[in-house]
């Protein structure tokens, strides 16, 4: 059991802005919460490769094809950094992966929506990565050293993800009638799911207060969401895209944009597994994992044989 003295000392370190490192003492609950949060983040990067990967072979120019491939590759890298960070807490990557393939570990629900047209790829860059950057910029200041460092590296690499999406979407929004239609349609479909990425309202977010107390997060879901909306409204306007929310209006008093009610029923239903692509996403990852088994085994066996040779 964690003693009160240990908990107090730990809290003092957090309040002083110190970073917690893997070998430091930490409350069991802090460790658990971090494993949950970091692995969810890692799973999201990995599952996030699928909706975008869906378009790699169909991108309409070589330049954009390379951009997309590089971006999907970065996501594998980000998943890798995050799994490594999580492993410092005493779990293995295998356990973590099997937890979401066979268990019920969660990942960001946004990736349970399909990418129907190429404009979806642009919108994922602009909105989904834009939202992820808001979140990850905060997490780069997280109290847990390995998590903060992983996010710092991710943020550095990810700024191009948003930029390329916004740039190409701008071209489509100002392009031919067909391109404009695809662009607007993609925004219509991705807008609300993107706002849900920040998680439930603070009043419905049981973990939030604790994560903030421990400095894992430094801002609440609603604060981050508001920051994102404020920024995105202007960006949409600049390229002639309409955000699908008739209630969106500037609030002189608060200095922020007010927005309509988020369809939380949909959010919870997708989180619980009933989304358009939930089954497909898990199936694809499961196939990759199971079909990779013989490869991982072979390499390990080869290494074992070489070691034996060396020893004899």
């Amino acid at each position: 059991m964690d003693t009160q003295k240990q908990l107090d000392d730990f809290q003092k370190r957090i309040d002083n802005g110190e970073k917690i490192e893997p070998k430091d003492w930490m409350p069991e609950r802090y460790r658990k919460q971090l494993i949950r949060m970091m692995s969810q983040h890692a799973h999201s990067e990995i599952v996030g490769m699928l909706p975008e990967g869906n378009w790699i072979t169909r991108v309409p120019s070589l330049k954009r094809k390379m951009v997309l491939l590089a971006k999907v590759q970065d996501e594998a890298g980000h998943g890798l950094y995050l799994y490594s960070g999580t492993e410092t807490l005493g779990v293995t990557r295998k356990e973590l992966i099997e937890d979401y393939i066979y268990g019920n570990a969660k990942y960001s629900s946004i990736f349970n929506y399909p990418t129907l047209t190429y404009a979806d790829i642009c919108v994922i860059g602009w909105l989904v990565d834009g939202a992820a950057i808001v979140n990850q910029t905060m997490l780069a200041k997280s109290s847990y050293g390995p998590y903060a460092r992983a996010n710092l590296r991710i943020c550095k690499e990810e700024s191009f993800h948003k930029k390329q999406g916004y740039e190409m979407l701008a071209k489509m929004a100002n392009g031919t009638p067909e391109q404009r239609k695809m662009a607007q349609d993609a925004v219509n479909r991705w807008w609300w799911p993107t706002l849900m990425m920040f998680g439930p309202h603070d009043s419905d977010s049981p973990n939030s207060a604790e994560l903030i107390k421990w400095g894992v997060k430094t801002k609440t879901n609603d604060e981050l969401r508001r920051h994102f909306v404020d920024r995105t409204v202007m960006e949409a306007e600049a390229i002639g895209i309409t955000l699908p929310d008739p209630e969106l209006s500037y609030n002189e008093e608060t200095g922020h944009w007010d927005f309509g009610a988020i369809p939380w029923d949909e959010f919870w239903s997708v989180v619980k597994g009933d989304g358009p692509m939930n089954l497909e996403r898990i199936k694809a990852r499961k196939i990759a994992y199971e079909e990779g088994e013989w490869v991982r085994k072979a390499a390990k066996e080869y290494a074992r044989k070489r070691k034996l040779e060396k020893a004899s």
Partner: peptide, 9 residues
């Protein structure tokens, strides 16, 4: 992409 036998690969 997204289907490799291990993340590193």
């Amino acid at each position: 992409a997204g289907h490799g036998p291990e993340l590193e690969e």
